[in-house]
Design a protein around this nucleic acid. Sequence first.
DNA 1: TATTGTTATACTCTATAACTATA
DNA 2: TATAGTTATAGAGTATAACAATA
Lengths: 157, 157
Amino acid sequence: MASLQEPLDEVATDTASLGALDQLLGYHLRRASAVFAADFARALEGTGMRQVLFGVLSLVQANPGINQGTVGRILGIQRANMVAPINTLVEMGLIDRRTDPRDRRAFLLELTEKGVATFDDSLRRIREHEKGLVGDLTSDEREMMIDLLGRIERRER
Amino acid sequence: MASLQEPLDEVATDTASLGALDQLLGYHLRRASAVFAADFARALEGTGMRQVLFGVLSLVQANPGINQGTVGRILGIQRANMVAPINTLVEMGLIDRRTDPRDRRAFLLELTEKGVATFDDSLRRIREHEKGLVGDLTSDEREMMIDLLGRIERRER
DNA sequence: TATTGTTATACTCTATAACTATA
DNA sequence: TATAGTTATAGAGTATAACAATA
């Protein structure tokens, strides 16, 4: 082990080695995801839209009348953590929420007109932001990436 | 738009469509990263090790005598958010922290003997956990993945 | 003046447990 | 008994601003 009495000059810069971290997929996944999230936030700045909120909008857009619990299960969000986002979207006037007449415990969700417009605008911005970040990837690389990530997602325990 | 008066049976299940989300790289990055993080936590359960802490250990291991600010910059962690993790690692007895004699504002970091042992043990567990999650990827796929993620990371603004 | 580390603070995301109302 | 949604709470992670000590 290096002595505490002799600090090493060469590690005083910002070009130090990542060590074992550099070959760990989990580390790069985490960092790339963080870079994406920060850029996402910039792209949607001022709209009030966030990753989770957009995820919910996308599910409701694609499946009008879907219920709240199903949205959470598909997005990997627990029941308890769905309440605030759904309230937010209702308060923003982007989704309608009503009780399912066939199961009065459950809520059915649907986009409002404003919700449709916001979803479309957000999607446009997100696609531009993705183009900025991974625009230099070929279609093949992009598809392979989504395929590989999908395989990891489906390993969830 | 579907009427609020007629709930759709087919979306009451858990097999609903992701909609636009399914073709967004950012979504899959986020989900895969979350799956990885949860599995990481399970693999290191009981050791007190976490993703950020392990990241710091790896940098200090690879660059003995590195200073705190440099670690943060490389890992993308702000100065203010480095204080608690470093305190934790010092309290766990895994790193030594002392002031740099050449710049008495700065701290130099080094692994203790226990830190080396913990790092080695953690790395072994992490490699096994990664094998469990992405063991079916070929070496080529794995390398391509790390390369693509690295390209995204370096796009950080 | 600029930089290193610190404190205080706030917000998001996530996890768990206990509750209610319905089934 | 089980399930849908809720509330309360706690722990991570991250962001900003202001401060002391040092450069």
